[in-house]
Design a binder for these strands. Sequence first.
DNA 1: GATCTATATTCCTTAAAAGGTATATAGATT
DNA 2: AATCTATATACCTTTTAAGGAATATAGATC
Lengths: 120, 120
Amino acid sequence: MELVQIYECLCDVTRLRLLHVLVQGPLCVCHFQAVLREPQVKISKHLAYLRARDLVEVERDGNWMVYALPAKRSRELQANLACLQDCTRENPVFQRDLARRRKLTPNLVGPSTCGCSTTP
Amino acid sequence: MELVQIYECLCDVTRLRLLHVLVQGPLCVCHFQAVLREPQVKISKHLAYLRARDLVEVERDGNWMVYALPAKRSRELQANLACLQDCTRENPVFQRDLARRRKLTPNLVGPSTCGCSTTP
DNA sequence: GATCTATATTCCTTAAAAGGTATATAGATT
DNA sequence: AATCTATATACCTTTTAAGGAATATAGATC
């Protein structure tokens, strides 16, 4: 039952924040650290958790590991991501993350770069 | 963060099925047993779990404990219940539950009776 | 090839959940 | 009052998760 796997991924705040931020586009671990302000281990482990359940995909770019939502998303995942966006619209924690994310990579457009290499 | 609590409730198949069936209206434990075909302990415990997190409300009716979705539902809960309905629309397990539920209490209308007392 | 950087993994501890068996409880019925 | 019914709770076992500290790894750079 794939649906339960999705909910398992959603039942931790850190993972919720990761996914929420990822909706805006791919990001590397160091940027996640800056956006969530959480220790590297924590972020890496939760990303591994998401990855093991196919909620995210990874691609290496030099030293950086760039995480992204899967290119092809199941109906269930798509629906739940939309629902998450809806539920977090007025949530300070999630909105703060988004604000930090925008500040961090204002120039970020391409789908396969996290912008780390172009940021000092 | 109430949102995480909701997802915690959703990350188990049995609880998903309970909630999914509850969308159709209140139900008592013995009917849940008949619909889900799961042992009483299991159902009772998951209902207690949902209750502890305010995802369901209970009311006693004689010997029967009638469970229902909360009268006032948060935006988050409402959104996720809708999303769940959407995600299970074509899922055999959930649809089978619904079918059994319909068969079981075809005459069930009122909001505060599970129909147990009127069923042989 | 040594070192640096970004990230992953291992090990540990603690806590929480799931499922089952057996038992308790509360109200109804006799 | 004794018993029956529907449901809850306690207890036990096994599994899973979370967080942190320390360490490993892979690729880049000097």
